[in-house]
Nucleic acid binder design. Structure first.
Lengths: 204, 204
DNA sequence: ACCGGGCCTATCCTTCCGTATAGGGCCAGT
DNA sequence: ACTGGCCCTATACGGAAGGATAGGCCCGGT
């Protein structure tokens, strides 16, 4: 099977490709960014499977994914992600990805998943499906109430209290209240620190 | 040579260890977090080299590094990092790390570096040294002046304009000025969005 | 029945943020 | 010599953020 692996980390790219080639019977082409990946797809024809790192130069969000899917003409494209926000996985699948693979997955499992996807099946790890069933369950987010979580989400978009209030159909003062408890719980001095803490924890 | 590799991403951990064991003549022990790494070091005696992922459960910042260095009694401990802020590398070395390895490095280079460090030498990639010489050189940061960069750094710590002004020995108004141009350049509506953008870009 | 916790709202006040306007100094390229 | 970019400062104002205090609603546990 012919596979294209695109990841900007040389080490990750080379070791994973070496693994797939030795343990699996794969022929692996490599790319370091979206542009390189798209070029390789066009030059070397469609691959049985294209693996795209989620965090890579060029593919802001998932815009690069659509381009790759189109370029690879029918055959599968999957997303490879280090810190998987679960929500991203759903969006990727909605855009037509054939799979979503967190790097927390084992190497042998990766190989199995790759074979599965090459066969045309859609692969999603059970962890993410479970996480979809029980909406949140995040180590840091467990301390927060639902409201506080919503407010934090607005905060991380850089919204003002008034805007968050409008979005949630509440009064501005209420947002301020939540913001204060939020800052306490996240051990932050102000909204910016709270936002950074949330970002650091991988929420949003 | 006996090596301990600690990384919370199963895939990365297993493929890299497979590479080191097949291409290099290494015996690789594995751990998924700091606690596991420390336990393994104590149980299985000191390793010729310990490789710690920078972003891993338990090791907030570099506090886990010191513990590992102490536990490994004299023999080397190195940091493995995905997004290398260069400054972190210097701090790691200051704390007694024997090396700093960005994952953007090739697999063969990793092997060379590992052999080098096992021999007792301190390894740092030239990229980082160069980056130290020419302070910044960041894709997004190239648009920013030095001052703006400093202000952004303070912002990302969650500091108030007044505090940033004190740190840089400037007037608060000046900070406000930079903050405004900063927001324009980062395409942000306010300081929070600017901070998130910086975080997103991997600065700090 | 009572209490506590989460939630929403209100008023008041201080401080900080964001913006505008208007200077001056420094240095590099034209 | 002039322009333009970067840097610093000053004054001023409206609005937002942050904090304190106080009250009411609903629900689950004692």
């Amino acid at each position: 099977m012919r596979i294209l692996l695109a990841d900007d980390h040389d080490m990750v790219r080379e070791t994973i490709s070496a693994y797939l080639e030795s343990k699996g019977d794969a022929i692996v082409a490599l790319a370091t960014d979206i542009d390189g990946a798209l070029r390789t797809i066009r030059d070397a024809g469609p691959f049985d499977l294209v693996l795209l790192d989620y965090q890579m130069p060029g593919m802001n969000g998932l815009v690069g994914l659509s381009a790759a899917i189109e370029a690879n003409g029918g055959k599968g494209v999957a997303i490879l992600s280090g810190s998987a926000p679960a929500k991203t996985a759903q969006e990727a699948l909605k855009l037509g990805a054939i799979g979503f693979i967190p790097k927390t997955m084992g190497a042998q499992s990766l190989l199995n998943a790759v074979r599965f996807m090459v066969a045309g099946e859609v692969y999603v790890p059970v962890d993410l499906m479970r996480e979809e069933a029980t909406p949140s369950t995040h180590p840091l987010a467990e301390k927060l109430s639902q409201r506080e979580f919503q407010v934090l989400e607005g905060l991380c978009k850089g919204l003002a209290n008034k805007e968050i209030a409008r979005d949630l159909d509440l009064q501005e003062v209420t947002i301020k209240l939540h913001m204060r408890t939020l800052c306490r719980k996240l051990d932050a001095k102000n909204r910016t620190q709270a936002a950074m803490a949330a970002k650091e924890a991988g929420l949003f």
